[in-house]
Amino acid sequence: MSSTSVRLRYFAWLRERLKCESEEIALPPEVQTVGDLIALQRRRGPEFATLFAPTSVIRAAVNQNFATPNTPVGPGDEVAFFPPVTGG
């Protein structure tokens, strides 16, 4: 992984809708939090804009810990996006 990129992972219907399990993207310097990353995702195309809309229910994790919009994101991090969990 390059020194300025993040690993993104998608689960459940988010993975199916984006037809992507995992990808590496360059991290622009202005992206410093999960909220910034979501705003960046929204600009990647119509499907991204829908799935990452402000009204979306999706959750996030950074380095496998549940995250909030304020959670910091930096180069080398693994950021996951997924629907609310439905186990048990």
Binding site: V57, T86, G87
Partner: peptide, 25 residues
């Protein structure tokens, strides 16, 4: 807590062949 705080996602596969992701309750 497991039901609401552990990352699992259920998909229902119906007898008629259709399927749907379960929504959180």
């Amino acid at each position: 807590w497991l039901k609401t705080r552990a990352p699992f996602w259920k998909k229902e596969i119906y007898a008629d062949g259709s399927e749907a992701w379960v929504a959180a309750r």
